[in-house]
């Protein structure tokens, strides 16, 4: 058992025994060795289910939305990305800060699940792409912190540089090549909405794509409607995506969804100034305000 797993179990036990929170959300081992799905622990004796390993991918903050009407507090483990998701959900007024206890975990970057499945247990596994590009591996907000705080301060002061080379590669294509590329991607989409369900920016009470209003949203699973879905979702999370990459990981059809989201992050930064969603909860959202001197490159 890793040192961090031990610490997690200890603090979860303490929180539950003292009654500080009624539920602790963490990760546990799943069906396969390369899966560590979310665990909802409400009894001290269950804390040994909790685990911290290279596959604790799920962004746990999203589950706070489901528990927002629960009585008492909920404790949740947060990596860097989970903490940004938490901030984002606070900004969306979907959770109550007073009802949540955040337990921060320094994240060294997790391993690629698909590669793990493919290569097997005893092979050298690469980090997940989203973790390779991660700018904020450490939690930005927490009540307890399970790592070395001094190291945290050092790390927190330096933000990793963003890497948009994959976006740039698409931008370099001709319009027709780009269209073909995306059509190939979204032809695979089965409209399972896993990307949406796992996304901390998708916090609507009722998603437009679930609505039955006539003439508003198409539900057919075809190339055109799938792209409509993709573009609409991209615009909906624009300025709100915290780049946790969960949508892409959850996608059973391996659609590179983050290539859309990152494009918007990149453009927002270029057009309206640097903005990292979920970092500063006081900041105004890029599409929630304007500057009279915004660029007008095509108007």
């Amino acid at each position: 058992m890793s040192e961090m797993t031990k610490k997690m179990q200890e603090i979860a036990r303490e929180i539950l025994e003292k009654g500080e929170a009624q539920v602790v959300i963490g990760w546990e081992k799943g069906t396969f060795w390369y899966l560590s799905p979310p665990a909802f622990i409400d009894k001290p004796e269950d804390v040994q289910r909790l685990v911290w390993d290279d596959f604790c991918h799920n962004n746990l903050s999203k589950y706070l939305v489901d528990l927002k009407n629960h009585e008492g507090k909920t404790a949740v483990f947060v990596k860097g990305c989970d903490s940004r998701a938490f901030n984002r959900l606070l900004q969306d007024k979907q959770i109550d800060r007073e009802k949540v206890i955040l337990i921060g975990i320094p994240c060294p970057g997790l391993l690629d699940q698909d590669k793990a499945k493919e290569l097997g247990k005893n092979s050298e596994l690469p980090k997940a792409q989203k973790c390779l590009e991660c700018q904020y591996p450490n939690p930005l907000v927490y009540d307890y912190y399970l790592g070395d705080k001094e190291a945290l301060n050092e790390v927190a002061a330096t933000k990793e540089a963003a890497d948009y080379s994959d976006v740039a590669a698409i931008e370099a294509m001709s319009p027709d090549e780009r269209y073909d590329f995306w059509t190939r991607q979204y032809d695979r989409c089965i409209r399972c909405y896993a990307c949406r369900n796992v996304c901390p920016a998708c916090s609507c009470r009722e998603c437009v794509f679930d609505q039955t209003r006539v003439g508003w949203i198409g539900k057919a699973n075809n190339s055109s409607e799938n792209q409509f879905f993709a573009l609409t979702r991209a615009m909906h999370v624009a300025g709100r995506c915290i780049e946790c990459g969960e949508c892409e990981r959850a996608c059973p059809m391996d659609i590179p969804i983050m290539l859309l989201n990152k494009k918007l992050v990149k453009d927002i930064n270029e057009l309206f100034g640097e903005y990292d969603a979920g970092v500063d909860i006081e900041g105004k959202l890029p599409l929630g305000h304007f500057d009279k001197n915004d660029p007008e490159e095509f108007m």
Binding site: P175, R178, F181, W182, A234, L260, K263
Partner: peptide
């Protein structure tokens, strides 16, 4: 506009 161009429009 940039997003539409990005998907090939």
């Amino acid at each position: 506009q940039r997003l539409l161009q990005y998907v090939g429009i």
